[in-house]
Design a binder for these strands. Structure first.
Lengths: 177, 177
DNA sequence: GGTATGAGTTCTAAAATAGTACTTGGCCTT
DNA sequence: AAGGCCAAGTACTATTTTAGAACTCATACC
């Protein structure tokens, strides 16, 4: 499978990755959330190559994650701003950040702290169930086929039979740990 | 900047991306959460090239996101399982999934539904503040330098002065159901 | 006129990926 | 014992993507 077919998969993760799943896009978006808006500011802060940056910004605009807004005429100049669609990527960025804080904090601790202005505390993001409010645990979630399961589907959808699950072990499992 | 220097940045998002930020890794992890464990199963379900798959699995093991566990001897064979560190990536995957469900659902709706076994409902993940429990909004979060801000830092840290003028804050938006 | 600015585009070399074929250890069948 | 099969990789080539520097373009400023 090639990268450019990813958005056709019947899987929302694949489709999301087709928009933000390349090497640089999430770093660009992180800077967007920190109010970076202009080409040269992105370029300088990220150390990204200019051609790649141009390409990524264009793709984000094509996908309505960013929009290009003029901030002056005369030399006509544009800046890039998050749309609502882009703002809705905040949980993605925050959950990645949180994981990095937990598992790769460096010697002295996490590089950033996040303060919730409303309540005044530094916090971590926590992911909960929209229905009952309980914190989500992967073991407590069951994946089911949704209405769009076969929209155009070249891919197995939900937990198809794997050899792993079916085969009776030829040899006894050897535990080592 | 090259990709392989990303883990040195004083930013948890960069560091996280140095582990899971390439083309395939998140798709591999998605399948891990669906109980895929063996090389050929990953390869077949993802359509990924075998050399790339081997490389990614190895890197995930090196980073302790997966571990390799023998499931038989005799022909010695191993499978790949999520560690706790890997399981803790669940919010990342779920928040991406949720965004894809919202913005790229296809004609008939989202490809998958997620049922919370504990409460019995299909749900969306919601991200809240660990301190006050309120849903997070990017505009209500302030980023500050943390204790590890300058651990080895070649990069500007928090909101350095930009030429772009600040915007006056606008109205808060309400969460859509 | 000469230089500076911001936002790109062009170009080449290096790196990563796609896709196929081959290898390896051990079992199973004939 | 020979040949085939299986799972898990490696080796190798062709294509695509990225890194990095240099160049363009429109206007402003001195």
């Amino acid at each position: 499978m090639q990268w450019n077919k990813l958005d056709q998969e019947p899987c929302s993760l694949s489709r999301t990755l087709s928009v933000i799943g390349d090497r640089w896009t999430l770093l660009i978006l992180r800077d967007c959330f920190r109010k970076v808006r202009r080409f040269d500011d992105f370029q300088e802060r990220l150390g990204i190559g200019r051609p790649v940056l141009a390409d990524r910004l264009q793709k984000l605009v094509d996908n309505s994650v960013l929009l290009k807004a003029a901030y002056q005429d005369r030399p006509m100049r544009y800046e890039y701003r998050l749309t609502q669609k882009g703002l809705d990527l905040y949980p993605v960025i925050m959950s990645m950040n949180c994981w990095g804080d937990r598992y790769m904090p460096g010697k002295k601790g996490p590089p950033h702290l996040y303060r919730h202005v409303t309540c005044g505390h530094t916090f971590e993001p926590v992911q909960i169930c929209s229905e009952c409010g309980e914190e989500l645990d992967p073991r407590g979630v069951h994946v089911e086929a949704g209405p769009g399961a076969r929209d155009g589907a070249p891919m197995p959808v939900v937990d198809p039979p794997l050899k792993t699950a079916r085969q009776k072990p030829k040899q006894r499992l050897k535990r080592r740990t």
